[in-house]
Every structure is written in structure tokens, then in C-alpha cells.
């Protein structure tokens, strides 16, 4: 139950009313945070206990992962290209343009690949997940599932959760590869860096722990996107406006959470 925000003034003393309203708002936020936490717990719990709807997971991997390939490749290519341009400008000042390859590769693999790919997936697939579940909620389709003796979490939420966790690391790797290729195109073909140096230095400086760090990040971002977007759809307000608001909130919240979580993961891992 959500606490009511006080609008009356029982004491007539303005600071007390302000405190009451602040307290009520804080309680409301706490209640919502608690509900989100419980949602996460149920999502993970059902994902870890059989039966898992494998066919639905595969379909969601197709939607979240395969469907995001084009946008991830496009953004990856241009991110790598602009990194190469900016990196060459900075490195050539110190006569270190031979390190352009490692700069592009490390930036992409450790940071930009997982983060930008996740932001793209949140915008493309996350918003669609929220809208789809929100419409199912409004159209009583989730209630219909429950009344068939089927668990809506297993049918709707868990497949998205697992699919996002499977798809995100693959998309981040794709982003990295295409980005490194984009950086190569600009650095080697346009700016004149030696191709052997570009690739050779990447092999020297890029370590397995960098790659694994990026993959762990991408997996956790998949979890965040599916958690936030499923939650917002599951508890959407009524009507088209409610679904529209939930969709916007889902994309904004998951994007912010991705960036915040990225900082903490980077601090912990590197």
C-alpha cells in the first residue's frame, strides 16, 4: 500500500506541514524502492528455479539481441571512429600515435562497448518490453495468465531477464569489434597510422581481464535493463498515458542506473 501524501494542515504550523509532506514523500519512495527490490528478488528467484520457458527465452533473445545488432553495429562503428580521431589528435601531441590501437580498444572493451550498447538496448528493446508488459497489464492479459494457473513472472518477466543477460555480452563484444574496426578505418586509412602497429599494440596491451571485465559489466547491464523495464511495465498506470509514462521512466531510469552501476563496477574491478 502506498502512503498517502498529506495535503491538509492539521496543526496549522507551516514547518510541521512541510515535514509531514517530506516524510510522506520519503515513505512513498521507500515503499516503491521496496517493491522494486521484491520484484528483483522474485525475478531472480524464478529465473533460478525450473521450469524455465526455453522457447520464450529464445524468442526474447531474438528480439532483444538479434533485433539490436544493426543499431549496435552503427553506434559501435562511429564510436570507434570518433575515438580514433580524438585519440590520434591527443596522442600525436606527445608523439605516441602508435598507441592509438590500444587507446581505442581499451576504451571500447573496458567502458564504452558495454555502456553504449546497453544504452542502445535500453532505448530500443527496453522501451518495447515496458510497453508490451504495460499493455498486457492494462488489457488484463497478466491476470488472464494468473487465472490459467500460470505464473506471469515465468512467462513474461523471466524470459526477458535471461534473454537480456544472454544478449548483452554478445552485443557488447560486437560493439567492441566493430568499434575497433571503425577506429582502424579512421586511424590507418585516413590518418596514416601503420596497420600493423594499430593491431599489434592492441594485442600487446589488451588483456583477458579487460575483456572479461567488459563482459561482466554487460551481463549486469542486461539484468538492470530487464529488471527496470519489466518492473515499470508490470506496475504501469492505466491507459495509454500510463504506458507512455512508464516507458519513458523505464528508459530514463535504466540509463541512469547503467551509468551509476558502471562506476561502482569499474571501481570494484579495476
Amino acid at each position: 500500500m502506498q502512503p498517502e501524501v498529506l495535503t491538509s494542515n492539521p496543526t496549522g504550523f507551516a514547518p510541521v506541514v512541510l515535514l509531514q509532506q517530506l516524510g510522506a514523500r520519503a515513505l512513498l519512495l521507500l515503499a516503491r524502492a521496496g517493491r522494486m527490490g521484491i520484484f528483483l528478488g522474485r525475478m531472480v528467484g524464478f529465473a533460478l528455479t525450473p521450469p524455465v520457458k526455453v522457447a520464450r527465452v529464445v524468442r526474447r533473445v531474438h528480439f532483444i539481441g538479434f533485433g539490436s545488432i544493426l543499431v549496435v553495429m552503427l553506434t559501435g562503428a562511429f564510436t570507434g571512429m570518433v575515438l580514433s580521431l580524438q585519440g590520434f589528435y591527443a596522442l600525436s601531441r606527445f608523439g605516441s600515435d602508435a598507441f592509438l590501437g590500444p587507446l581505442v580498444a581499451l576504451s571500447l572493451v573496458r567502458e564504452l562497448g558495454p555502456v553504449i550498447a546497453a544504452l542502445m538496448v535500453a532505448g530500443r528493446a527496453g522501451s518495447a518490453i515496458t510497453a508490451e508488459i504495460g499493455i498486457m497489464r492494462n488489457g488484463q492479459q497478466l491476470d488472464a495468465l494468473e487465472l490459467m494457473g500460470l505464473n506471469p513472472f515465468r512467462y513474461v518477466v523471466v524470459p526477458n531477464f535471461l534473454a537480456a543477460m544472454i544478449s548483452m555480452p554478445l552485443l557488447a563484444c560486437l560493439f567492441d569489434v566493430v568499434g575497433i574496426w571503425g577506429g582502424y578505418t579512421v586511424g590507418v586509412k585516413l590518418l596514416g597510422v601503420s596497420g600493423g602497429t594499430y593491431m599489434g599494440e592492441i594485442a600487446t596491451y589488451l588483456e583477458m581481464k579487460d575483456i572479461m571485465g567488459g563482459i561482466y559489466k554487460a551481463i549486469s547491464f542486461g539484468g538492470i535493463i530487464s529488471w527496470v523495464c519489466c518492473y515499470k511495465g508490470y506496475y504501469t498506470d492505466f491507459g495509454a498515458e500510463g504506458v507512455s509514462r512508464a516507458t519513458t521512466q523505464a528508459v530514463v531510469m535504466s540509463s541512469v542506473l547503467i551509468l551509476v552501476w558502471d562506476y561502482f563496477m569499474t571501481s570494484a574491478m579495476f
Binding site: 488489457g139 488484463q140 492479459q141 491476470d143 487465472l147 490459467m148 494457473g149
Partner: peptide
């Protein structure tokens, strides 16, 4: 869930799965 398996419910708006055909909706349960 087991008890609800003995229930049927016809909602006001039908609550059909809008991405499934009439046949697949009926076949779903």
C-alpha cells in the same frame, strides 16, 4: 496455481493475447 487451474475467467474486455491468433489463444492453456 493448482487451484486456479480449475478456474475459468471471461474478462470484460476478453483479455486475449493480442499477438496470438484466435486458434492460438484458445490453444494457449
Amino acid at each position: 496455481e493448482a487451484l486456479r487451474s480449475r478456474f475459468g475467467f471471461v474478462f470484460q474486455g476478453g483479455a486475449l493475447f493480442d499477438s496470438l491468433s484466435v486458434f492460438d489463444n484458445v490453444a494457449f492453456p
